[in-house]
Design a protein around this nucleic acid. Sequence first.
DNA 1: GATTCAGTGGACAATGTGCTCAGTCTTCGC
DNA 2: GCGAAGACTGAGCACATTGTCCACTGAATC
Lengths: 160, 160
Amino acid sequence: MTIDHLDARLVALLSAEPKIGVLECSRRLGVARGTVQARLDRMAAKGVITGYGPDIDPAALGFDVTAFVTLHIRQVAGHVPVADQLALIPEVLEVHTITGGGDMLCRVVARSNADLQRVIDLIVDVQGVVRTESVIALDTPVPYRTLTLVRAAGGLNPAP
Amino acid sequence: MTIDHLDARLVALLSAEPKIGVLECSRRLGVARGTVQARLDRMAAKGVITGYGPDIDPAALGFDVTAFVTLHIRQVAGHVPVADQLALIPEVLEVHTITGGGDMLCRVVARSNADLQRVIDLIVDVQGVVRTESVIALDTPVPYRTLTLVRAAGGLNPAP
DNA sequence: GATTCAGTGGACAATGTGCTCAGTCTTCGC
DNA sequence: GCGAAGACTGAGCACATTGTCCACTGAATC
């Protein structure tokens, strides 16, 4: 889907101050309220905006350790049953199937390095998982973001 | 921070239907409105809830390709200047410093495999980056989530 | 020249919000 | 056992926002 200037500014504004509401957005952007509503509806309909759920910081819940675990799986039954089992582990936040050396990549969190061992053991215990390789995230200089992308897609300067 | 049953149910409810508002939450959960407000304020103050920004789907914007790029960097100036440069690339959604074979791991998106090459070239051009290894995410059986974590931390069943 | 689409500016009733208050309950320390 | 502190309740209020209409304008399309 194509995004224009106004869409990008709208998303940026809502990302910065989510609680301001449609009316305040229209004032800040200098357009009519109906326009803002229409843009938001359109982006929601097209799947660009998937929701407005509360953003949770796992670290604030005590899950200080983040790791990326590459999985090698036995290719007999495919990866679907493996993914289904991984989905049952709360600490597994994300699972991808990948190209290259491994078969799957998942992001996991844990309360400590010792706790990470427990989580990895849970993963290894999943039927079909042959071997895992883990890398621990020491620091996160750039936390997950999509705003730069939206700005770029909307033809705005990336940073301001 | 510690989360209880009610907090977890509240976050789950807001994640499922973000637009219902505080009053409707209090009705659904069977508690007073002030309680819901107090819980949300407390979680926001403790950093558990970092915001309510619109969730953007890069794929819906045309960025269909997701890849994880491991960076090897020259360790003379440290990783901070590298991270700063990476932050300027819109398609770089996330950067971590890591243990193990590589030095940094970043998540990038692109419009196509050819476009991914362009993005990787941008990364390689960053001062201090020596070499990169990329894996492409073919499928995402478990998209990023934190709800399971919240449910677990709040003492609820992970799945219902 | 006619049609279509996006945006404007205004209106309306209905609802939710932020804020405050007094009262109840449980837990904790002494 | 008793007082204090903290959390929750239920209620009230003024105010702003929402969802939903409408008629009108301007630009682009054919």
